[in-house]
Design a protein around this nucleic acid. Structure first.
Lengths: 335, 335
DNA sequence: CTGAAAGCGCTTACAG
DNA sequence: CTGAAAGCGCTTACAG
């Protein structure tokens, strides 16, 4: 069996209370006793049992993150930021893949509640009322990352989608494009809620351009396949397009793939612009011009907000909105 | 405060032992009492405290996975498999990003030991003697995934790299290529240990071809940047190459990017073949011909091996080697 | 500075 | 079928 604090105490000829004190290093302990304890710890190769400790101080030092999917680079980059921030403060992170499924999401929430995680980050799905009330009821701090929270009192980390799409569209228009197609994912929202779509429209309006309804397509998701299918449809039904703005990088790559399949050259025949700036944006040929969301930083921030709250440094509230930048690469041509 | 088992017992007018029994459902409990308990659970909205439970049965129902990096698709796909398998059996998974760093790896191992995780999956790094002896000493079941374990007694999940590279190279040769370059990542191993390299060589030998030393390049890592730099060097120093075999998909995309930058067309001027078959392999232009490793399945298997051991279904031992397949897409041209 | 004791929220023999 | 009691491995007032 693993040695316990009792074994250490015995060997060091002190009480378990003292061992605990030197290990947690708050109270004063005489140098001598301290040394004796440390030596016993060494000799026995004692590792404190964090679960017993958690039971006492009602803190598990673990955060959980819920993703619809975990194998795309979006999740990966966000997770990377979360993980770094958590690790710096001695926390672990549990990742949960909900598949966007209702039941699975709920079953995770139940599990996390039982495991008494100290905080939850809900990423990239709609935070249904049912979820948030569950979490509220078990009193676990919650932050929504880059998804729509229906309730304004729940802290949120995001970019200003509307503004970002406005800037991207204006950029395209500035490059001389007047016939721009749009592909957006988000079957869960109404068009008015979709900032990337409204930004697209407003930019047109402000530049005295009209959006042809057939030029914009609402897709199921944000994945490559969606972009491929959507791109093909758009290329077919909307002749005369000189550019397509896709609301994710994967979608944009899908469009490029669809164009490639029909012998349409990017950017000479068609300009393509993405959204996110995932690592794959610079791997594509031609490298993708896109809107950068600081995903790593957003992940860090989500974790930090939770951690600051847990460690009583700062109240959990407010909405962090991150700035977005246009990354010019090679997929957009100046007309 | 959250209701405890005591509150439930009181309200249902039974002992905590009984509550525990109905919640864990082993012993017989009279239907009546059972109903009363369940109702109390409902009314109080009681959620069992998993940490207290863990303390009793010395099981945390959590697995940990160590990756050097978490934002690439390799990790993402593997993680996806692990997560699914774990979730099906009621386990959670903690992910740790070591950055390949020695100290950070050790600090994670220490943390995981204290948290008493039930199993560890070590992915894609060299399992140093120091790590494995640490883990052995704290008696946490360990599986190495797709990395080199120095010690044969530690269970391992992998593909047969040598055989896969042999097949890939033979495929290229079969397509009429005789001047093939090779890019491999793995500064940590000797060339003889690198199966992908030895397979490349053996295929040449068996086909009566010689490998020109300048045609093969050892890179620091497996990332896009490495491939870009390596590809550029190779294209520069090795004239007359008709194909390049890269030991990862990212590396292959890097090569394609380097080729593109010099106006070399893939596959008409140069064929490129990758390794892994990550999602991005089919997103590239042209879509990448590559060697498929069943990463998702390998992740599942790693978790399942651990879980079977933990739940006493099967002893933890042996090495699972997964089959590899060549996925023909558009980046290789028949000469 | 240090120890005895209670308690965190469960589970599990042991009786009955 | 059910309860009283001990115990899992820690931490933390409370005394001294």
């Amino acid at each position: 069996m693993e040695p316990t604090i009792k074994d250490v105490a015995q060997r060091a000829k002190v009480s378990t209370a003292t061992v605990s004190r030197v290990l947690n290093g708050q109270h004063w302990v005489a140098e001598q006793t301290k040394a004796a304890v440390l030596q016993a710890v060494q000799e026995l190769n004692y590792k404190p049992n964090a679960v017993a400790r958690s039971l006492m101080n009602a803190q598990t030092k673990t955060l959980a993150i819920l993703f619809p999917n975990v194998s795309d680079m979006f999740s990966g980059t966000v997770l990377s930021g979360i993980e770094d921030a958590a690790h710096e403060r001695g926390f672990s992170v549990i990742v949960c893949k909900t598949g966007g499924g209702h039941d699975r999401t709920l079953s995770y929430l139940q599990l996390l509640a039982e495991k008494r995680v100290d905080g939850i980050i809900f990423a990239s799905e709609v935070l249904r009322e049912e979820y948030s009330s569950f979490v509220q009821q078990v009193r676990i701090p919650l932050v929504v990352l880059s998804g729509e929270s229906v309730q304004p009192e729940i802290p949120t980390i995001r970019c200003n989608d509307h503004q970002a799409a406005y800037a991207a569209t204006s950029y395209l228009i500035g490059q001389g494009h007047e016939h721009i197609g749009m592909l957006y994912g988000g079957a869960h929202e109404t068009p008015e809620q979709n900032g990337r779509l409204t930004g697209f429209h407003e930019a047109h309006r402000d530049h005295g351009l009209v959006v042809v309804p057939e030029h914009v397509l609402c897709l199921e998701g944000f994945a490559f396949k969606d972009g491929q299918a959507g791109g093909a449809r758009l290329l077919h039904q909307a002749k005369g397009l000189t550019a397509i703005f896709a609301s994710s990088d994967e979608l944009a790559l899908g469009v490029m793939s669809a164009a490639y399949a029909r012998g349409i050259q990017v950017p000479s025949d068609l300009s393509v612009m993405g959204f996110d700036d995932l690592p794959l944006a610079e791997m594509s040929i031609p490298p993708l011009t896109t809107v950068r969301q600081p995903l790593y930083g957003m992940g860090r921030r989500a974790a930090t907000m939770l951690l600051d709250h847990i460690q009583d440094i700062k109240k959990l509230e407010g909405h962090a909105v991150f700035p977005t930048t246009i990354i010019e690469r090679k997929s957009v041509r100046r007309l």
